[in-house]
């Protein structure tokens, strides 16, 4: 490889590294502990932080509760209908957040097509904390679903067959073999889902609004803080950067395959 080629390659690589790291440096640099502590006492911060923790915990619980059985079904069925369903379940990943928000509004809002079906006509989820949870679940579920489906697919079918010959019931096979053997992949998927839910912005803003203490999550509070005090926005961002970094470490530390001995 000539010197020129190597130089061009290095420059190209450096450009993207710079682009990805520069905003992170911007958030971390120029913050000292004292001003961080002051900023974190701003009235915007505490309600947003607790709301984010509450709503993401709820949406993650919903994703695990409903996503695990769905992932199992998807992993065990192979018809074209199931393939199509699996592809559809990944739509929220590629859907623009604004479109997701509008879709949620048109389904669960006051005039949504589910109004009068799920709850009395005229009632609405929009602008409530439940709407935040719904938006987070919608955008974050595919990450867990994909990880879990893939993990279940890679599971050695002889493990469950042996368990069956040992007299294990379907429930015991699922809870004592399938889940623990797939654990690392499930934890990784759950961490990604949670991080996505925590950062949810567009769909929440359109469907749930930005009401402090009710629908204003950390991500929305950053946007609101930008108008009041940029240091508060920076402090909130720092919290999210730290959490994101922790999630990345968790995901990276999980062994990739659910390999047997």
């Amino acid at each position: 490889m000539s010197l020129l080629t190597r130089l061009a390659l290095g420059l190209a690589a450096f450009a993207l590294v710079l682009l990805i790291l520069a905003p992170l440096v911007g958030i971390v640099a120029g913050t000292d502990v004292a001003s961080l502590m002051t900023a974190l006492q701003h009235p915007l911060v505490w309600p947003a932080l607790t709301l984010s923790l509450l709503t993401t915990a709820t949406s993650l619980a919903l994703i695990l509760l409903f996503g695990t059985p769905l992932a199992w079904l998807l992993s065990q069925r192979s018809g074209p209908g199931w393939r199509a369903l699996e592809a559809l379940m990944h739509m929220p990943v590629v859907l623009p957040p604004a479109v997701a928000g509008l879709g949620l509004l048109l389904a669960f809002g006051r005039d949504g097509w589910l109004s009068g079906v799920l709850y009395p006509r005229g009632a609405s989820l929009s602008l409530t904390t439940a709407a935040v949870v719904l938006a987070q679940t919608f955008v974050a579920a595919p990450f867990y679903l994909q990880a879990a489906t893939e993990a279940f697919r890679q599971l050695d079918p002889r493990l469950t067959l042996v368990a069956q010959t040992l007299g294990a019931s379907p429930a015991r096979r699922f809870f004592s073999v399938v889940l623990p053997v797939s654990r690392s992949a499930l934890v990784g998927g759950a961490a990604l889902s949670w991080a996505r839910a925590l950062g949810e912005f567009g769909a929440t803003l359109i469907f749930a609004g930005s009401l402090s203490g009710r629908t204003q999550t950390l991500a929305l509070a950053i946007y609101a803080a930008l108008e009041a005090d940029v240091r508060v926005a920076q402090a909130l961002s720092l919290v999210l950067v730290a959490v994101s970094l922790a999630v990345l470490v968790v995901v990276r530390l999980q062994p990739r395959a659910t390999a047997g001995p």
Partner: peptide, 16 residues
């Protein structure tokens, strides 16, 4: 699960 036939598959498939 009701047949009570023990099975040792190739490579043993021990629970990892």
């Amino acid at each position: 699960e009701a047949r009570r036939i023990g099975y040792v598959p190739q490579d043993f498939a021990l629970f990892p």
